[in-house]
């Protein structure tokens, strides 16, 4: 069997994607792959190029150079957009329309057959908790309700890929939890979710994979487990000599700080071997624990300005 090319197999695949506005590079040489069916967190400080990247992927902006494939088609392919949902960071909908009318308009724009529109709009309204406000004008909605409506709009037409750009920026903690549940439910249905956010605890709770961007460039990427350093082991050990350190280095990159030895890149099955090796070398073990960094600690370290 011939393996599919990454641009065909992946939900999103970019190579050297660059967007410059005048002399300023908003996105610089962005290369990444988002597998299908995963929740992908796209992190970065303000102005890192997250929203511009989403605009490039949804075809709202044209790349200065580089290429991007979305669901196997070049980014911006008009017909392909029927399979994509998008909640923009700047979520604004026709203020003179009711929530239901906005959803109906987007059904029409997405090319959803007439017969299916009623069910689609009803589902969306229930999912985002606006069923009782369906006939109220958007102008009367709070920011949070408009963001909920935007999420409803993005979910129309059972998309294969949903871009959510800061989807909870206007929501209270309960609303945030509901959005997280919606995102997890989407993954359950095999939908790929591209989540732009700087709410790191939120990302940590739902994402399978993340990329951290700073000044237009990816500075780190991988599965959440990789990034959180779950392969890192911290051992409190005394009477450790040079031989023991060399032995530990055989398991991964080892670092000693006072009594604490940190070894990164150790798979769980090899932890007992590592401990046995240290004991054999004369080390006295007092504690063994998994490295437990929060996404926030990692993020701040990555984007910290010197």
């Amino acid at each position: 069997m011939v393996e599919a090319l990454p641009q065909e197999a992946a939900a999103i695949h970019t190579v050297g994607l660059t967007k410059a506005y005048g002399g300023v590079r908003a996105v610089s040489d962005l290369s990444m792959t988002v597998p299908r069916g995963e929740i992908f967190g796209f992190l970065g400080p303000n102005g890192a190029g997250k929203t511009t990247s989403v605009k490039l992927l949804t075809g709202l902006a044209k790349a200065t150079s580089g290429t991007a494939w979305v669901l196997g088609k070049p980014a911006g392919d008009v017909a392909n957009r029927a399979r994509i949902g998008y909640l923009p960071e700047l979520f604004r909908y026709q203020a003179w329309m009711s929530a239901l009318e906005v959803l109906q308009l987007h059904c029409e724009l997405a090319g959803i057959p007439k017969a299916g529109r009623k069910a689609e709009t009803e589902n969306a309204l229930v999912t985002v908790g606006l069923a009782d406000r369906a006939n109220d004008r958007v102008a009367t909605f709070s920011k949070g309700m408009q963001q909920r409506l935007g999420l409803g709009v993005a979910l129309l037409g059972t998309p294969d890929l949903v871009f959510l750009d800061e989807p909870t920026s206007a929501l209270d903690p309960v609303g945030r939890k509901e959005v997280r549940d919606v995102i997890l439910e989407l993954r359950g249905r095999g939908v790929t979710v591209f989540l732009n956010s700087h709410l790191l605890s939120e990302v940590q709770q739902v994402c399978d994979r993340v990329a951290v961007v700073d000044r237009g460039k990816v500075v780190a990427s991988g599965t959440m487990a990789d990034l959180l350093g779950l392969g890192e082991i911290r051992i409190r050990v005394t009477e450790l000599d040079g031989d023991a350190m060399r032995a530990a280095a055989g398991f991964g990159s080892a670092n000693k700080d006072g009594e604490w030895l940190t070894v990164a890149g150790v798979t769980p099955e090899r932890v007992p071997d590592l401990v046995a090796e240290l004991v054999r070398s004369g080390g006295r073990i007092h504690a063994v624990e998994r490295g437990r960094k929060t996404l926030e600690e990692i993020f701040i370290k990555l984007v910290e300005r010197p």
């Binding site: 949804t58 075809g59 709202l60 008009v78 017909a79 392909n80 957009r81 029927a82 994509i84 998008y86 923009p88 700047l90 979520f91 604004r92 909908y93 026709q94 987007h106 724009l109 997405a110 090319g111 935007g150 709009v153």
Partner: peptide, 14 residues
């Protein structure tokens, strides 16, 4: 200006 174009133009329309 308002941003309504973002949601509209991400649909399969030119």
């Amino acid at each position: 200006e308002t941003g309504t174009a973002l949601a509209i133009l991400s649909r399969p329309v030119s």
